[in-house]
Amino acid sequence: MATAEQLKALVRSYAEGDQAQFLSVAMQVAAHAAKQGHSKLAQELRSLVDQVKTKSQIAPRRLEPPTPLTQPRGELAGLLSVSYPSTRLNEMVLQPAVGERLERVLREHKQGHKLREHGLRPRHRMLLVGPPGSGKTMTAAALAGEMQLPLFTIVLDGLITKFMGETAAKLRLVFDAIRSTRGVYLFDEFDAIGGQRGASNDVGEIRRVLNSFLQFLEQDQSDSLIISATNHPELLDHALFRRFDDVIEYNTPSGELANRTILAKLGTFTSDELDWKQLSASAAELSYAELARACNDAIKEAILDDKSVVTTQGILRAFEERRATRRS
């Protein structure tokens, strides 16, 4: 007979319309039945699965996105905001090592049925660390876009309260949603709830919230992708790091990466006369977001001056303005 987890997986995949996963679990049930000595039942199940595959010629994973909560309702309305990103990873300028690790996450999810047949699961708990504007939030959007899933962003203002036990109860609601509606769930500014226990400014309620988060994360068996992002990894409790399947570090772009970012943002406004060596040197320590905004400023200036391309000096001025904005 099927195990309790297999029965729940069958119902969940049926509810989500994921035929490939449904048949994959059915094959697991057949394998389990064979181990229990029910060879006839196992053979019948395998034959039924083969018949369905032959008739429908299904793909390993459905291409259409699941039907998510159109908008979170009830208490969830104040805890989750939803969007449907069209961003793709190839739109981002990433360090090669970071790009490879994100591609691996996508590959595991797109071929998750192969892993589940061997009792394994795709990576589904990620921690992204790095300075502001380095691409962490955009990564969550790109993964949601690639996987054709909704992006649910946890609203910290609604989650964290001053009342004892209330935040943990709201956190449970979030993880219930993670389990019931497949999507990419982003805990941005994660250090707000993942701070070190025992820190000088620690209060009992936040400590209980962190303990609850660790417990919920450890118990999560959903098909959703959970992403936590922080600008301050040094503030996180050490117990958190080993709970994630992947910890990916982001840095500000430099050298060739900075030039590629500038080139991508300028588009048709790129000039053959740009001094890339000077631009690369001036872009040092600016984030991806700051480079993008500076390029947009340079493009606006060119348009208002009735020019079809930007100049090196125009971009350099925009870079300096971004630095001045940061200092102020």
Rank of each mutant, 00 (worst) to 15 (best):
A2M: 11
A9N: 02
L10M: 07
L10C: 08
Y14V: 06
E16T: 05
D18A: 01
Q19E: 13
A20S: 06
F22K: 07
V25K: 06
H32C: 01
K35S: 07
Q36P: 10
S39Q: 12
K40S: 15
Q51V: 09
T54Q: 09
T54W: 06
I58M: 09
P60K: 04
R61V: 05
R62S: 01
P66D: 00
P68Y: 04
L69V: 05
L69C: 08
P72Y: 02
E75W: 03
L80W: 04
V82Q: 13
L89C: 09
E91R: 14
M92C: 08
Q95T: 06
Q95V: 12
E100Y: 12
E100G: 14
R101Y: 03
L102D: 05
R104S: 11
E108V: 02
E117A: 14
P122W: 13
P122Q: 10
R123Y: 14
H124W: 12
L128N: 11
L128V: 07
T137V: 02
L143K: 12
G145K: 04
E146G: 10
M147F: 03
Q148D: 09
F152C: 06
L156D: 03
L159Q: 14
I160C: 03
F163P: 06
F163E: 09
R172S: 13
D176A: 15
D176Y: 08
D176T: 11
R182Q: 10
G183Y: 04
E189S: 01
D191G: 04
A192G: 02
G204P: 07
I206E: 01
F213Y: 03
L214V: 01
Q219N: 14
Q219I: 02
S224Q: 09
L225A: 10
L225S: 08
S228V: 08
T230E: 07
P233H: 04
L235G: 01
D237T: 00
A239M: 05
A239H: 01
L240F: 13
R242P: 04
R242N: 06
F244K: 07
S254G: 14
S254V: 06
L257G: 03
T270P: 00
D272P: 12
W276H: 14
K277I: 00
L279K: 00
S280F: 00
A281M: 05
S282W: 01
S282K: 10
A284L: 08
E285N: 08
A289H: 00
E290W: 05
R293T: 02
A298S: 09
I299P: 01
I303R: 15
L304W: 06
S308F: 03
S308T: 09
V309S: 08
V310P: 07
T311A: 01
T311N: 01
I315C: 00
R317N: 14
E320S: 14
R323C: 11
A324T: 12
R326H: 14
R327L: 13
R327I: 08
